[in-house]
């Protein structure tokens, strides 16, 4: 199983600016002084040893994550702005004449999680089948509203693909696309749902837009059970803990601290920080990753928990 991140930013896309690119270039050129970079291989090696905040970017598209297996099923979590590039890749791969079936699992219908759908190429190709799974009653209405005038020029009814909405029940597992999929209700304005995917002995949990109240032991234990022994937990780590329990309490998001605690309780193997705060730049996100790894190290009481920070384009092999 592989996980590919097409969009990792929370709340709103956050494109890299020219000023930010110039800062990266200046840092790279400074680091290159007195280096012998005379071959492409030497340049590649030099780039590889630069901090990620200099050589790359966490990216700016909003939530969209692909789950890939050897059987070629198409499974996505959320349709944030990252879904546009995913759709373009599917068009490149299959063209317009090979109909495909896509399974999408929706955490919730807030704008940043559906905004990629009007630009989701597979919806514009006749013969494609798109099944949008979720636990919200109003999921279809949210998608239709986004396509309606005056918000978008192509009405939902004009989309050539077959689009179906599939109602799931929280806490009830379903077999979909060869996966055992279990949704869980999460604390978020209007509710959100996490999904636990299991297949061929591997498990990934997608849990974004979820505020945790760890003072509630029953809730903590329920999430630890949901994350239990997962190979990867994709976790909403948008805020610092201090913000999450004060000025941003009830804003529906969580922190890196709680992600580490829940994954440690659950015996998960990897924690992926996700739904990055749009005001954070690459240096800040890299610093949060470093601090989170340190927290895991000093609070470890068992097997190590690998800490990753999601970026647009990242692929994780499970």
């Amino acid at each position: 199983m592989q996980i590919r991140f097409w969009g990792t930013r929370g709340s709103l896309p956050a494109p890299l600016t020219t000023d930010a690119i110039r800062v990266k270039l200046a840092a790279a050129l400074t680091a290159a002084q007195n280096m012998k970079l005379e071959t492409p291989a030497a340049i590649d090696d030099f780039i590889a040893q630069l901090p990620f905040s200099v050589s790359g970017t966490f990216g700016g598209d909003s939530s969209c994550v692909e789950i890939i297996d050897s059987e070629g099923t198409h499974v996505l979590c959320d349709l944030g702005s990252g879904a546009r590039r995913y759709g373009t890749e599917m068009l490149r791969r299959y063209g317009p004449k090979q109909p495909q079936t896509y399974h999408v699992f929706m955490s919730h219908p807030h704008w940043d999680h559906i905004m990629g759908f009007p630009f989701f190429t597979p919806a514009f190709i006749p013969g494609n089948r798109i099944l949008i799974h979720g636990c919200h009653d109003g999921l279809e209405a949210a998608f239709r509203r986004q396509h309606g005038a005056p918000s978008f020029p192509v009405d939902f009814n004009q989309l050539p693909a077959s689009i179906e909405f599939v109602q799931l029940q929280p806490g009830v597992s379903a077999d979909i696309a060869g996966y055992k999929v279990t949704p869980l209700l999460q604390r978020h304005a209007g509710d959100s749902y996490g999904y636990r995917f299991e297949k061929n002995g591997k498990c990934v949990v997608y849990s974004t837009d979820s505020e945790h109240r760890t003072e509630n032991s029953a809730e903590t234990e329920a999430f630890a059970a949901f994350f239990r022994n997962a190979d990867l937990v994709i976790f909403d780590a948008m805020y610092s803990l201090a913000d999450a329990v004060s000025v941003k309490e009830d804003w529906g998001h969580s922190s890196n601290i709680i992600g580490v605690e829940l994954c440690q309780l659950a015996g998960a193997k990897r924690l992926c920080l996700f739904h990055h705060e749009p005001v954070f730049g690459d240096v800040q996100l890299e610093d949060i990753l470093r601090q989170t790894r340190r927290l895991e190290e000093i609070t470890r009481d068992g097997a190590p928990l690998e800490i990753i920070s999601a970026w647009d384009g990242l692929v994780i092999d499970l």
């Binding site: 201090a242 004060s246 922190s255 989170t292 340190r294 000093i298 609070t299």
Partner: peptide, 15 residues
């Protein structure tokens, strides 16, 4: 030292 690090990582040193 460990608690101080937790304070800093969670930004409670700002509180």
């Amino acid at each position: 030292a460990l608690v101080q690090e937790i304070f800093e990582i969670s930004h409670f040193h700002l509180v």
